[in-house]
């Protein structure tokens, strides 16, 4: 099919849900003239502007870096801003909110529980030297090779597409999900981090990392190529090696003291999400 400058009419089936009026989601049909280059997010904006101002959806950067607009587009979790309509369909486009979350309204999922699970795996550099963590006296050096071991997993934008695609997430409410597990692994292999044992105690539970069975959909749908499936299998490998005491004791990056005036500590801003 030629992909030249053309406009065509695409039928949108968009899942709507108003908690004050509806028992559950229902589909509403819209027809939109779509031209080459229009993303699904552009389409939703056009519908909201010209046809139905009550349509609710989450968006922000519109360029695939913030992770706000993940939704189920023709049955696959994708970023709406990253997906061109004519790449996905020639006639019918179904847009639904991400599965495996609760829906607040229309296409808006409640991502706060996912952020809570993410926070629970302590996704920050942890050192056994608490004094150094709280009042740092210097930097940690890291070689490019050490960086490469976890760099891929830092590209995660927390969009929730992997969580929607995971079959275990469909039934198991206590399963952390691909994103928190990948972030736990990302910190475990970071040479600057010392908190592997605590994180492993949190993820190697009866509803933890071993409930991943490599369906691979998380890696298939990730818009940033983070490959959570790879991270989770590498984490299982680490756990088994730990069990057989095959892992060398991790040497954490030493502190390189810098002789400058320490900057004044800034107060942590209040946590506002979910309030």
């Amino acid at each position: 099919m030629e992909k030249t400058q053309k406009k065509c009419d695409i039928i949108f089936y968009i899942h709507r849900y108003d908690p004050e009026k509806d028992e559950g989601p229902w589909e509403k049909q819209y027809t939109l003239q779509v031209e080459r280059g229009m993303t699904v997010l552009d389409g939703l904006h056009k519908i909201k502007e010209t046809q139905d101002p009550s349509l609710a959806f989450r968006f922000s950067c519109r360029m695939g870096v913030c992770g706000s607009c993940a939704m189920l587009i023709n049955g696959k979790p994708m970023l709406a801003c990253n997906t061109q309509i004519l790449d996905v369909t020639e006639k019918i486009l179904t847009v639904a909110p991400l599965p495996n979350f609760t829906i607040i309204r229309d296409l808006v999922p409640d991502l706060v529980p996912m952020f809570g699970v993410h926070a629970s795996v302590q996704p920050h550099i942890k050192r056994s030297d608490v004094m150094e963590m709280e009042n740092p006296t210097g930097e940690y050096f890291q070689t490019p090779r050490q960086l490469e071991e976890f760099l891929q997993f830092t590209y995660c934008i927390k969009c929730g597409a992997c969580m929607a695609a995971c079959p275990t997430m469909a039934t198991d409410r206590k399963y952390p999900g691909p994103m928190p597990l990948t972030q736990a692994y990302r910190y475990n292999v970071d040479s600057r981090d010392d908190g592997g044992k605590d994180r492993n105690d949190m993820v190697a539970t009866s509803h933890g990392v071993f409930n991943c069975h490599y369906a691979g959909e998380c890696s298939n749908v990730c818009p940033k190529g983070v490959d959570p499936a790879r991270a989770i299998q590498l984490m299982k490998k680490d756990l088994v090696r730990d069990y057989f005491n095959l892992n060398k004791k991790k040497v954490c990056a030493p502190v390189n003291c810098v002789s400058v005036e320490p900057k004044p500590k800034v107060a942590v801003p209040p946590f506002t999400v979910g309030k």
Partner: peptide, 11 residues
């Protein structure tokens, strides 16, 4: 570690 043990022997 208990789940790791169960899973390893499962494998």
């Amino acid at each position: 570690m208990r789940e790791t043990k169960y899973w390893t022997w499962f494998i």
